[in-house]
Simulated assay, not measured.
Amino acid sequence: MTARARLLAVVATVLAGAIGVISSTQTWLTVTLDDGAEHALPVAGADAIPVLAPLSLAALALGGALSIVGLVLRYVFGALGIAIGAVLAVLTAQVAFARPLSAVAPAVTTATGLTGEKAVADLVLRVEPTPWPFVTLVAWVVLIGAGVFTIGTARRWRGSAKRYTTDAAAAPAASAGPAASRPHDAIDSWDDLSRGDDPTAR
């Protein structure tokens, strides 16, 4: 479990962010207008929640960064994931269950040219949600869980930077070992000449 902790946190965070980005372009609400013909007006997630796309992109970037950051930033990014997930979960739940007029007013104004809360309210006959806000709400729960998991397991993640530094330091030592263990012979002199060094000048 410890070895997979980083992978699980990264995948969960990236997945939640990706769902949010995709969802922002999908229809969240269908508004029926009381205009005689009862036209159905689709409202995209980005129109219902203006911060949906930018915060989803932030979560996506957060997941990618989690794969390379050190211990301190793991805690910071874990807390940011929880904060982003909590904010979006509250906003998404309001749209999914309460379906406030403010979520559809911009789309109605764009489609009809009417402005003002009363004018829009008089024109809206009913508002029905699609599955997308509920799917996205689950994604924010996953994002919050990933943030909590990141904070809880951050200290046990393998440090990639430390591993790379150790490997880089070990490589020269390994390559220098055989050369340092024997005297400088004729073959080494020819190698020096091929590199442009003059062994007789020493």
Rank of each mutant, 00 (worst) to 15 (best):
S56A: 13
L57P: 01
L60W: 10
A61G: 15
L62T: 13
G63Y: 12
G63V: 06
G63L: 08
G63R: 05
G64D: 08
G64S: 05
A65Y: 00
A65T: 12
L66E: 08
L66N: 04
S67G: 13
G70W: 11
G70P: 05
L71R: 15
L71P: 00
L71W: 15
L71Q: 12
L71C: 00
V72H: 09
V72D: 04
L73H: 07
L73M: 15
L73W: 15
R74K: 14
Y75E: 00
G78L: 00
A79T: 10
L80H: 04
L80S: 09
L80T: 08
G81A: 06
G81Y: 08
G81N: 08
I82P: 06
A83P: 10
A83L: 14
I84S: 02
I84H: 06
I84M: 11
I84W: 09
G85H: 10
A86K: 03
A86V: 10
A86C: 00
V87M: 08
L88C: 01
L88A: 02
V90N: 02
V90C: 01
L91K: 13
L91N: 05
L91V: 03
T92W: 04
T92N: 08
A93G: 09
A93C: 02
Q94K: 09
V95Q: 02
V95G: 03
A96K: 03
F97T: 02
F97Y: 13
A98P: 03
R99K: 15
R99M: 11
P100W: 11
P100E: 04
L101A: 05
S102D: 13
S102N: 11
A103T: 01
V104M: 05
V104N: 08
V104P: 02
A105D: 06
A105G: 05
P106T: 09
P106Y: 12
A107F: 09
V108S: 06
T109I: 05
T110G: 05
T110I: 07
A111R: 03
T112N: 06
T112G: 04
G113N: 05
G113A: 06
G113D: 03
G113E: 03
T115C: 01
T115A: 11
G116N: 05
E117P: 11
A119K: 14
D122N: 12
L123V: 03
V124H: 05
R126A: 14
V127C: 07
V127L: 04
V127D: 10
V127F: 01
V127H: 02
E128T: 14
E128G: 00
E128S: 11
P129A: 14
P129D: 11
T130A: 09
T130C: 06
P131H: 10
P131Y: 12
W132Y: 09
W132E: 01
P133V: 06
P133K: 04
P133A: 11
P133T: 07
F134P: 00
F134Y: 14
V135H: 04
T136E: 10
T136D: 14
T136G: 12
A139G: 07
A139Y: 02
A139N: 06
W140Y: 12
W140E: 06
W140D: 06
V142F: 14
L143Q: 13
L143T: 03
A146M: 10
G147C: 04
G147V: 05
V148T: 09
F149L: 15
T150D: 05
T150S: 12
T150H: 09
I151Y: 02
G152W: 05
G152N: 10
